[in-house]
Amino acid sequence: MNSPKLNPTQPTFLPSHVVKDDEPALVGAAKAGDIQAFETLVSRYERKIFRLTQNITQNREDAEDAMQEAFLKAYEHLGDFQGNSRFYTWLVRIAVNQALMKLRRRRNNIVSLDEEVDTGEDTMPREVEDWGPSPEERYQQSELGDILSKVIGELDPAFRIVFQLRDIEQLSTEETAEALGLSVPAVKSRLLRARLKLRHNLNHYFRRGATT
């Protein structure tokens, strides 16, 4: 017998700051064995989870594998999800672990995420320019997406992953520290460094008068 196909149509995108009210009910149904409910959760979050694994691994094949393994692990361990956090936060932590394993495997010389890293004493921004019109108005969405991916990909993983969890996935400082095995001060110092470095690199595209 052929395996049943899950719904291959593209799902409606859900912005990161929106939590649909039906999430607890869907998770409850999925835990009770409702495959359709789990499928709905996958379709809801697959784009965000793929962006997460892509931003961490910077490798499409690894990102695909990490995403797939994350959803499969989430399904296998649904019974362990106690509902103390959002389902999405729980899923992000699983996906981060899968993506980090891929990253470490591919880059043996990578700085360990739980090691001290030089967050730089010299963080004083040198380029201080007005960005002019809103970047969202100056660039088409796909073009802006390409710029954001390129710029975040240039960050050292130790900084990139903290920024991803804190500012894109909206985990708290404490949740980020726990997910990455870091102290809260380490998360804060890396986050500052990441934000300033991204600001610096985006300045090239967004400063007033930059060629679009």
Binding site: Q10, P15, S16, H17, R47, Q141, G145, L196, L202
Partner: peptide, 20 residues
């Protein structure tokens, strides 16, 4: 610096992931 750093965070936070 404060304004452009704030914009940096907002742009990433608000950006929509591309379709798979």
């Amino acid at each position: 610096v404060v304004d452009t750093t704030k914009q940096t965070i907002q742009i990433y936070c608000n950006s929509e992931p591309a379709p798979l």
